[in-house]
Write a protein that binds this DNA or RNA. Structure first.
Length: 742
DNA sequence: GAGCACTGC
């Protein structure tokens, strides 16, 4: 059996796990066109005029470096040792080798001369680590702090560690960070890496961000909701802080130093940022990436899983050593492709290297996630099947080939009249910037190849960038925050205006929760709700629990529901065992009290067992320990807020579930449905017919009245996190009386 | 009878 016949078998056999196999094979015979070139950084990287001025000198210089290290060091050493001088010198040498270094003085000058600077830096330019240091070293920040915002926590903490090393200090000194649950700052801190959400929170207590003299908004092109809120607020803050000193009535604000804003982004939206800030100056910095050769198919591939399968084996049999990363939209496709690849890999002739398949998606238990980072055994080729998680969140070493299906899943909020909209989670085409980002994953350590399972024409037809989150998310939580700042969503100037319907839905939701009065003004209840880092419905439930005397229970439940991962582990292969384990915690009323049972059981185990014992227990029970650990963090934070607000978080209703359900219902009023004679459920406040999600303990049960955490449209409109209550509980809620009266 | 991209306070 030669290689050729194995390949033929693959190309011609029907796909074993998908009903349809496409007719043609993708044609990856030659590069169709290289549509993006990644250039090495060079001296003419900076396309700005070099200024004559040379202000500020580097704090540390790379004197006497005998053995400059070639490889960048990514982690901070715990402390400086006797060899710290040589380490320090090599680090300073590395800083000078970054593409951005040649433009250092020009960048500092431009930021000095402009209130707002838009800095476009490609991957590997060094902008995120260097610019804050340049500003600090030049003295431009004065006595204020420099904040650098990041959309993700890991980025903020690891960047702080890196920059602290470069400054030859430990994290929490001159360089610090601040993210949820974790902070390393001191009075000496001058450069602070923060998550964008953290800075938005800070805004609530300090509307002019008076502690900062420079705010650098990094990864602005991602356009997260929080980034957009910041960008809008920074504009108004500057209008106050940077107003001419003689402006009347601004005496107190005039004492504050002017605020410098630097927007950092990938190339695509530079003009838009600039325009928003009254034609702010734009600076370009080239990056440093290895070249990636890009191939497109000659025909579109409707069955992208099958196409990915065939492309993988073409690479595996024809191409030299190097790991393969395949981008797929979701867990389902990953599991299907994993099976197919395994099936064919088992039939490969002896002279072809073996295949090590590594699935990678957020819901995968951590133990199985970690194997993608271990080195590929010799004589094997690693094949990673990943979702978007590998696009920005994690970097996998050793990738030489990328296969891009061109698909992803996107969550999008659909507003409905009564504020009873729902989320959709559907597969769609990716954007051009995603495609570029995915291809770039092949060029991290050397030149690479990207096989796109779509035509060049399809690429050109893709939207250039994703729609900003502000145009596709629920705005309820942000709107409540803005109300606390005395701002109205409708009046604030945004880069992209949110949908009118979504704004109305958010206003209505906040009104029905009692956070706003009928003049759209913030109520005392609303202000109380905003103090908690929770979605407004959960904040409302928490406040309701105070009077009902069940704060302890409600805190436990909403902490789990607020965690970023799901409580129950559910992979296809162990579905039945998982369902059996779950039954042990089941509560007749549904998912909310089932969650409470899990938390109570976990607390007992945590009290008596070691860390390893806890992990074992979680694995046996098919519980996601990450979720529980995060929930315990959240609960501790919420208890702190309660203590500050003089709320007794120990108040418990014991085993009486009535008050707990009533409290939760206060927050989830809009998420209620009644059973109809035909066995379906219809929203009480909206028009949709909903099904109970199969993951719910109440799936297929017929209950007269239910409430739920959320609605998600996938193949049906599914209600997730469902409990049942007597109809009378719903009728008792003031909102309903108010609504019937109106 | 049937399922879930990713963040963040």
């Amino acid at each position: 059996m030669a290689k050729i016949s194995a390949l033929k078998g693959i190309s011609n056999s029907p796909h074993p796990h998908r009903r349809h196999s496409s007719h043609g094979t993708p044609h990856h015979k030659r590069p169709i066109k290289r549509d993006h070139a990644w250039m090495d950084g060079s001296d003419d990287d900076l396309e700005v005029k070099r200024s004559k001025k040379h202000t500020g000198t580097p704090k540390k210089s790379g004197h006497g470096a005998d053995h400059p290290r070639k490889k960048p060091r990514l982690s901070a050493p715990a402390g400086s040792s006797s060899s710290s001088t040589s380490k320090d010198a090599s680090i300073q040498e590395q800083r000078k080798e970054l593409p951005i270094y040649t433009g250092k003085d020009a960048i500092v000058d431009i930021i000095r001369e402009n209130d707002v600077t838009v800095l476009i830096g490609e991957t590997g330019s060094g902008k995120t680590t260097q610019v804050p240091q340049y500003l600090l070293e030049s003295g431009l920040a004065g006595s204020g702090m420099i904040a650098v915002t990041q959309p993700r926590k890991v980025a903020a903490t690891s960047l702080a560690a890196r920059v602290a090393t470069e400054q030859d200090t430990s994290v929490g000194g001159l360089v610090g960070y601040s993210v949820r649950f974790d902070e390393a700052c001191s009075p000496e801190t001058r450069i602070k890496y923060v998550t964008d959400g953290m800075l938005v929170r800070e805004l609530l207590g300090d509307p002019l961000l008076s502690r900062y003299s420079v705010i650098i908004v990094d990864e602005a092109h991602e356009r997260t909701l929080r980034t957009d809120l910041l960008i809008a607020n920074l504009k108004t803050i500057q209008q106050v802080r940077n107003a001419p000193a003689d402006a009347k009535g601004k005496a107190s604000a005039a004492k504050l130093s002017p605020l410098k804003v630097v927007i950092m982004s990938a190339t695509l939206e530079a003009e838009k940022f600039s325009k928003f800030y009254n034609n702010a100056k734009i600076v370009y910095v080239k990056g440093r990436q290895h070249p990636v050769t890009i191939y497109h198919t000659s025909q579109s591939q409707p069955d992208y899983v099958d196409a990915a399968l065939r492309t993988f084996f073409q690479i595996h049999t024809d191409r030299p050593q190097g790991d393969v990363l395949i981008f797929l939209p979701g867990q389902e496709d990953i599991e299907s492709l994993e099976k197919s690849i395994q099936l064919y890999a088992n039939q490969l002739p002896k002279d072809v290297p073996g295949v090590l398949i590594c699935p990678m998606y957020a819901a995968l238990p951590p133990s199985q996630q970690s194997k993608i980072f271990s080195p590929t055994p010799s004589g094997m080729r690693k094949c990673i099947l990943a979702t978007n998680i590998a696009e920005t969140s994690i970097t996998i070493p050793g990738i030489k080939y990328v296969i891009d299906t061109g698909k992803c899943k996107e969550k999008r909020y659909v507003a409905r009249q009564a504020g009873t909209g729902f989320d959709t989670l559907l597969t769609r085409d990716i954007t051009q910037s995603s495609a570029v980002q995915r291809a770039g994953r092949a060029g991290r350590e050397g030149s690479g190849y990207c096989f796109r399972l779509y035509t060049e024409e399809s690429f050109r037809k893709m939207p250039v960038t994703a729609e900003p989150e502000i145009r596709r998310c629920t705005l309820t939580s942000s709107m409540l925050q803005l109300k606390c700042l005395g701002q109205n969503f409708e009046e604030l100037e945004f880069m992209d205006k949110p949908d009118e319907e979504t704004v109305v839905a958010a206003l209505k939701t906040l009104f029905l929760l009692g956070a706003l009065d009928n003049h759209r003004g913030l109520t005392p209840l609303g202000r109380q709700m905003a103090a908690f880092p929770l979605e407004p419905p959960f904040a409302r439930a928490l406040v309701a629990s105070i009077e009902l005397g069940c704060t302890a229970e409600v805190l436990s439940i909403i902490s789990v529901l607020s965690a970023s991962s799901h409580l129950f582990v559910d992979t296809t292969e162990a579905r039945d065992a998982a369902a059996d384990a779950r039954r042990k915690f089941r509560h007749l009323s549904g998912d909310h009290l089932t969650v409470l049972n899990v938390v109570r059981a976990y607390e007992e185990v945590a009290a008596s067992e070691s860390k390893a014992g806890r992990r074992d227990w979680c694995r046996k029970m098919f519980l996601n320990e990450r979720c529980l650990a995060e929930a315990m963090n959240i609960r501790a934070q919420l208890r702190d807020v309660c203590t500050r607000m003089k709320i007794d978080w120990r108040a418990s209703a014991g085993d009486n579930e009535g008050p707990v359900l009533k409290a939760l219902l206060q927050g989830l009023v809009l998420n209620t449905a009644f059973l109809r004679p035909d066995g379906s459920y219809k929203q009480v406040m909206g028009p949709s017919v909903v099904k109970i999600h199969p993951s719910s303990s109440l799936a297929d049960k017929k209950m007269p009245a239910i409430f739920y955490d959320e609605l998600v449209y996938t193949t049906h409109v599914y209600a997730r996190g469902v409990s049942t209550v007597p109809k009378s509980f719903i009728a008792e809620i003031p909102v309903f009386r108010l609504r019937t009266a109106a």
